[in-house]
Design a protein around this nucleic acid. Sequence first.
RNA 1: GCCCCCAUCGACUAGCGGCCUAGGUCACGGCCCUUUCAAGGCCGUAGCGCGGGUUCGAAUCCCGCUGGGGGCACCA
Length: 421
Amino acid sequence: MNPRVRFAPSPTGLLHIGGVRTALFNWLFARHEGGEFLLRIENTDTSREVEESVDQIQRSLRWLGLDWDGEVEFQLDGLERHREAAQKLLAEGHAYEDEGAIRFRMPDEGATVWEDAIKGTISYPNEKLEDLVLLRSDGRPTYNLAAAVDDADSRITHVIRGEDHVPNTPKQIHILEALGRELPVYAHVPNVFGTDGRKLSKRHGAVSVEEFRAEGYVAPALMNYLALLGWSYDDRTTVMSRDELVERFGLERVGSSPATFDYEKLMWLNGVHLRELPAEVYAETLVAYLAEAGFDGDEETIRASAPLVQTKIATLAEYPSFAGFLFRRVAPPHELLDGAGDLLARAREALAGVEPFTAAVIEEALRALAEELELKPRQAFGPIRAAVTGSRISPGLFESLELLGREESLARLDAAIAVAA
RNA sequence: GCCCCCAUCGACUAGCGGCCUAGGUCACGGCCCUUUCAAGGCCGUAGCGCGGGUUCGAAUCCCGCUGGGGGCACCA
């Protein structure tokens, strides 16, 4: 039988990156096994529901490429089934009425033991299990009833969820057993922490998929990074495409200890994935990102500059500060120009005569100039770079000049010469 | 307080009794390349929490301790 898994967030706030990783593990497992991945919104607590949350969850999963099978399910829609289950348990003596609510009778001896697919054998003493409310006095089902019944009704074979659910598992096991339903395999994935060892939160940096997206991360990189947070393929493989992850993922290699989210490694990985993109795709990605970010610059120039920045920036968000000079003049700090008046004037002269105004010819002319002035390339090009890009750090100088065009380049040199003098 | 889980470089991890002089990746340091910044190449610093066992042999198995996390609702 093909496995069926589900990701079951509650719509009580923004979907957190830790939850996204849980979703990813479910998805990878399903796709690897040729099974199905369901999305169920656990909205039984209407009082805590955050309106926007359901959309945000779906947007996040879609952007990451975690497609689910079938329609989104809402737990609340199963209300009648949950009530029936509670009534059945009541009728068969597994539950009893208590102040208008229906409570499940938990065993108070022995232990509940299950083989967790990630953590191994877990044993939970039954005496610690309280008789839990199945149906509230107002008739609404509680989480443990609804979750257990839904998993069974959806024929979920593997419940892969966060480890905060470990204490719920024995409860759900007893409910399912009393109902005479089949038990799924449980797999509890460890937490994700921030660098201070505390739960990852806003103060550590981005925590929602949309924030990462806005910060210029791309989906394959985030997926790759998240997969590596608690799972490994072998002792040396780090960079993996979405297809490779699907092909290689398995629950057996998910670790059982919590992991710390490392923004620096994510950034590195993002750079790796960005560099691996074919030039056209990279340009496309950059243009789309900048448009969404509200960057003010013409598409043609962005596309033309894409190859100049591809190996230089690790997130798309770095583009404006790195290549912004292509769209507007940036005044260079005086110290970068000091004493370079003559050099800049000679460079202007050289560039005025370059024909055609292309990177290769420009390079030839400027190198000849440097040689003539007996300057090392770095000494000669530094001030020119500053004059044209406004910074000490920039894409390749010759390519940048070409992109800017002769007229604009000369104008910027003129301005710098005036300042340097 | 009680219950459950976890424990290898700063971080992510490989390791499932001898292959370990503990491997890979990020970060960090150095060198090379180089028009800046990157990218790339080479080299390096750095780790099995502690104490007992078991065994010819332990990072690997067992016990205790310590530390960390999670959970103890008519929340999910």
